[in-house]
């Protein structure tokens, strides 16, 4: 006997794979959109954060 038989007895089991697909799909549309629409200035500012942290150290500014 295969497991699918027991799963059939769970009411509405098909909702699980469907939910995962929809959640997954929507989520990545959103992330993609968000990234596409990001402001370039902010991007530049944020991506340089690791390099700027030494500036805050007075002994490094000499």
């Amino acid at each position: 006997m295969k497991f699918i038989n027991y799963l059939e007895s769970i009411s509405g089991v098909s909702v699980f794979p469907l939910t995962s697909l929809i959640v997954f799909f929507l989520f990545f549309i959103l992330v993609g959109l968000k990234v596409y629409l990001m402001d370039k200035n902010v991007l530049n500012e944020v991506m340089n954060l690791p390099l700027r942290d030494d500036d805050s150290n007075p002994s490094n500014q000499k």
Binding site: G32, V35, M47, P50, L51
Partner: peptide, 20 residues
């Protein structure tokens, strides 16, 4: 970025990388 002294190649990519 610290060791190479340059920012990460694509910050956009890093966001997608994180969430995905």
């Amino acid at each position: 970025p610290k060791a190479a002294n340059r920012p990460v190649y694509s910050y956009r990519l890093s966001i997608i990388h994180f969430w995905a």
